[in-house]
Amino acid sequence: MRIVIVEYGMGNVHSIASTLKYLNVSDVIISSDQEILKNSDKIILPGVGSFAKAMQRIREAELDTLLYKLSVEEKKPLLGICLGMQLLGRSSPEDGYNEGLGFVNGDVSRFDSSGLKVPHVGFNQVKPSAQAKLFHGFTGTPDFYFTHSYRMLSDEDINQSVCDYDGEFVAGFEVNNIAGVQFHPELSQQNGLRLLKNFIEKF
C-alpha cells in the first residue's frame, strides 16, 4: 500500500511517517508532487500552524484542485490531521478570514471563553460516532492528544466524533472517503496506532 503524506512545509511530518512505517505500510512517501499523489492509495493531509499560511501554500502548489479531483471526485481516501482536518472545512478566522478546501461543512473558530486556558493541550476524551470507521474496535471514550487554539464546529451531520473543552467541538469526522481528526493520532500512544490502523484497513 502506498500512502502519501502531503508535504507543504507545515510542521512535523516525521512522526506520522514513522507511525505508518511502524504499522507496516510498505510505501510511505512524503511529497507534494502531483504525479506521486495521483498514484497513491491513500492521502494524509497533516499540518501544524497557521490556517492562512497553510491555505496559501496549498493554493500556490495547486494542491487544492488536485485534492478535490482525487478525493471528492475520484473518492481516494483522505485523512486530515489537526490543522489538516481544519483545512478540509469551509473557513477559519485565523490570521484574517480565509476559506478552506470546503470538502466538509464545518467552520473553524477560536476557543474564546474568558478564564479558559488556550491552547487546549493534552490528552482528552473523545466520544466516537457509532458509525465512524476510524474508531472501529474502540469502546468508551478513548483518550487522544490534542494541541490547538482553534476548533471546528458543525451544525450538520458530518458523522462527527466529539470532544468537550468549553463545549463540544468536532474531534473527528467522516464523510464517505474523507475523514479528519483534530487530535494527533501519531502522538496518542496505542489509541493513535489503532486509529491509524483503521484508516489503513477500513478505508
Binding site: 510542521g11 501544524v48 497557521s50 493541550v121 490547538h148 487554539s149
Partner: peptide
Amino acid sequence: IRNYGSQS
C-alpha cells in the same frame, strides 16, 4: 508563532 502556531 506566525509560522507554527502558538501551541508549538
